[in-house]
Design a binder for these strands. Sequence first.
RNA 1: GGGGCGGUAGCUCAAUUGGUUAGAGUCCCGGCCUGUCGAGCCGGUGGUUGCGGGUUCGAGUCCCGUCCGCCUCGCCA
Length: 558
Amino acid sequence: MFIDIRDRTGLTQAVFDQEDCDSEVMELARSLRREDVVQITGGVEPRAGGTNPKLDTGEIEVRGTALTVFSRSNNPPILPDDNEAAKMAEEVRLRHRYIDLRRPTMQRTLQMRHDLMALTREYFYNLGFLEIETPLLIKSTPEGARDFVVPSRIYPGKWYALPQSPQIFKQILMIAGCDRYIQICKCLRDEDPRADRQAEFTQIDLELSFVDRDEVIKIMTGFIRRVFKQLLDLDLGQIPKVPWQLAIDKWGVDRPDMRFELHLQDISEVAAKTDFKVFQSALAKDRGVVKAIRIPNSAKALTRKVLDQLQDTAKLHGAGGLPWTKVTEDGFEGGIAKFIDCIAEELSAALGVEPGDTILMSCDEWLTACESLGQVRLHAARHLELIDTTAWKALWVVDFPMFKWNADKQRWLAEHHPFTAPIPEDIDKLESDPGSVVSAGYDMVLNGSEIGGGSIRIHDSEVQNTVFRVLGLEEEDMRVKFGFLLDALSQGAPPHGGVAFGLDRLVMLLMCTDNIRDVIAFPKTQSGADLMTEAPGPIDQEQLNELQIHCVEQVAAE
RNA sequence: GGGGCGGUAGCUCAAUUGGUUAGAGUCCCGGCCUGUCGAGCCGGUGGUUGCGGGUUCGAGUCCCGUCCGCCUCGCCA
């Protein structure tokens, strides 16, 4: 009579034999069913009937002499089995989360998440950081994501917001003389979730006084290297700083995946020598460029169908199309070959092509051309399996532009957030030429995923006012919404800066999953529902009355 | 808010041009066997085909609406 017993550390076999225990125990053991909760008393011994190499505990077994049944389980709707779970609809796993979490992988993930949090606190506490909590019920601030909102009972018609991040509070803590702050905190943004994004997520949030960009980067580099060394026994090595402009130029994204090559190259000069209208009209644009990537030995793999899919990718990201050609012994063939034959030699030399290569191109205004081809680069690499999945490539992206122009709203938006400082030499240009101002922000990127970012903040209320003005916030509006911050800044504010790391995404990387729900004990679905508790749910009329909230439209169902 | 894919037994799936009583594996229950560990053999329970309409002699299948899940664009300072 064999029984697999499982706890959070793993699986062990127990055996009940008439030679070891009386018939009552035998009978009770025989009555055991899946997921019953038991206590087994007995000796640990080498297995009598041969070992099982597939189990960590395959060489031993517990020979039961006594048995207590703490609790019986109904027949479980799903099994806590990693292989089963891989095939199962995620919906049913989320509905029965208490069973799904029993799976070995889930237990390991929860352990990993805990280890990361413990390590984080230890690392920063040792550097003199203070863990300080900030409020959950706060004032709604403009800009940024949509706020989750909580009605006030005491002030009918007024609302709290839940924090999108503790940003302003941690800056105020610096002004309050707290020097070094850390918090592992929940952040809430009422935006549609994604595979790697939840409305409710966890941040490793910190802020330091009297630092410059490179000091923050140094501390965080030490942190992330420690994380991977301690949790995965992996040395990330030196972490290079890449200016934003170079990142876009070379990889076509502000979070480059450096685990594979396929760099974007600028072929504007050569392309200008053709009569190809598509190139010519792109080059005629302000900052118009022609970019190309060379994909070695891909002529066969990149079939017409695949190229069409890549073209869809390019179009989705703003390009008009995806000019391409293949390289043969006899020159270019297919795609736009006939338009660029005239520059075949020059272009081949510039790109260093060889027969069997495919050349993919984009042409447009610089940012669009780079970004669309950057996405093509990613998709092509995935399709051709060029990504070294055992590699770990981290970098810092620095020198972001301070603002980006939003054509729809016809105004400047903060690239990072409105409290980010410009680099000192660009302060004069804030109002005269906002588009050229470089910010003191920094993002850490690991394997093409942004895992953290931050900036040196503005610690001068005049500069802060100027930035608000550039962002088109009215003077009066500023007073109402950020008056307390401006007041604080004018009461002696130290230079300060900080960073926030996405805890969930870090655990995703550590556990090698691309599903954020796998690293959160009780996650929500893509429509923000908790399938286990069925939140969000209705509330009593009495509660509504108390809050003086009247629902205009009753929900039809029920 | 837009696009794509999906929803049939507890779970994973099948079901011909619309056609008999919606099947299989697994799980579960019972029996036999058994130092088993992906056990084996025999038998059994289990279904409002997500929901609501419509077309039809007849709908899992076709049409309309709706709900839910996943991926994705917008969005995510």
